[in-house]
C-alpha cells in the first residue's frame, strides 16, 4: 500500500489517499498543497498488522512522527518506506532516503533551527500577559470548543485506542464542553503532547472553530527544548521526555 494525496473538492484541497496497485499511481498528486501529516494512518487499527511494508509520503515533520511512533513501540520502522518531500516557497523537493534512519542529518539541522522556528509573535504576546490575562485569553479561545475531538483524531500522536476522556467507568474527564470541560480537555492534550508534538499543524487545521492549538503545542515544545534539550522525533530510539527517569535527576520531585 502507498499512502499519499489526491486532488480534493476544491483546487486548493488535497485528500489523503490509499493505493494498492501500480495502475492507481496516476491518482496521486504531490504539490505544495500536500501539507497534511499522513503518519497517523499508519497506526490505524489493522493497517500494519499483516506485516507488509507500507510506503508513505511524508514531509520532515511526518518523518519525525515516524521516529516517535517507533520510539513509543507503535510501529516497526522496517515496515515503513518513506517517500520524503519538503515544501519551500511553494516548490516541492524530494528528500533523499527511504528508511527513517537516513533522515537523521536532516532532523539534526531542523533541531538547530528550532529555537527560532518555534518563535511566534502571538506566543510572545501571550507570554507577556499576566496570568489573569492569559487565562482570559484561553478562556475565550476554548469557549468555542465543541469537543468534536478533531484535534485528537487528526494528530498522529493521539493513537490511544481509548483516550482518557473516553474512559467512562468512571468518567475521569467531563465530556461537557463548558468552561471547565474545555480547559480540562485542551490542557490534558497539551501535556500529553509535550515533547511529542512535531508541529505539523494537523490539529490546528482540523479544528472547525479555529482554536489556535499550534500556540499551546509550540509553547510546550519550547519548554522541553529549553529545559531538557529534548526535540521530538530525533530518532526511533529517543527516550520519551515525560516517560524517562534518571536517578541523578537534580529535581526532588516528579512533575
Amino acid at each position: 500500500m502507498v499512502i499519499g494525496y489526491k486532488p480534493g473538492t476544491t483546487a486548493d484541497r488535497r485528500r489523503p489517499h490509499f493505493i494498492r496497485t501500480p495502475e492507481e499511481a496516476d491518482q496521486l498528486v504531490l504539490d505544495s498543497a500536500c501539507i497534511t501529516n499522513l503518519s497517523g494512518y499508519l497506526v490505524s487499527e489493522g493497517l500494519l498488522s499483516d506485516e507488509k511494508a507500507v510506503a508513505i509520503f511524508l514531509k520532515p515533520d511526518g518523518i519525525r512522527s515516524i521516529n516517535i511512533l517507533a520510539a513509543e513501540a507503535q510501529l516497526n520502522i522496517d515496515q515503513i518506506l518513506i517517500l520524503g518531500f519538503d515544501i519551500n516557497d511553494n516548490q516541492v523537493t524530494a528528500l533523499e532516503g527511504e528508511k527513517v534512519e537516513e533522515f537523521a542529518t536532516l532532523i539534526e539541522s531542523i533541531k538547530e533551527q528550532a529555537p527560532d522556528a518555534l518563535k511566534n509573535p502571538l506566543l510572545e504576546k501571550i507570554e507577556g500577559m499576566t496570568p489573569k490575562e492569559r487565562f482570559t485569553f484561553w478562556q475565550k479561545e476554548f469557549s468555542r470548543c465543541i469537543k468534536c475531538y478533531a484535534c485528537r483524531q487528526a494528530c498522529p500522536m493521539c493513537y490511544c485506542r481509548r483516550c482518557i476522556v473516553d474512559c467512562n467507568q468512571p468518567q475521569w474527564v467531563n465530556t461537557s464542553s463548558h468552561t471547565l470541560g474545555n480547559f480540562e480537555w485542551n490542557i490534558v492534550r497539551a501535556f500529553h503532547l509535550s515533547g511529542r508534538c512535531v508541529g505539523c499543524g494537523n490539529c490546528d487545521r482540523a479544528c472547525p472553530v479555529n482554536i489556535p492549538l499550534r500556540l499551546i503545542n509550540a509553547k510546550m515544545a519550547q519548554e522541553v527544548l529549553g529545559s531538557f534539550d529534548h526535540f521530538a522525533g530525533m530518532s526511533h530510539t529517543q527516550e520519551p521526555v515525560l516517560a524517562s527517569f534518571k536517578k541523578d535527576d537534580s529535581e526532588t520531585f516528579i512533575l
Partner: peptide
C-alpha cells in the same frame, strides 16, 4: 471511509445531527 479519522466535526456542525448523551457531573 478509509481516510475518515473519526472526529465529530461533521456531526457537530451539522444542522440536523441530533444525537446526545447524558452525563452526571
Amino acid at each position: 471511509s478509509m481516510r475518515c479519522i473519526g472526529c465529530a466535526s461533521c456531526t457537530f456542525l451539522c444542522p440536523t445531527c441530533h444525537c446526545f448523551d447524558f452525563q452526571d457531573e
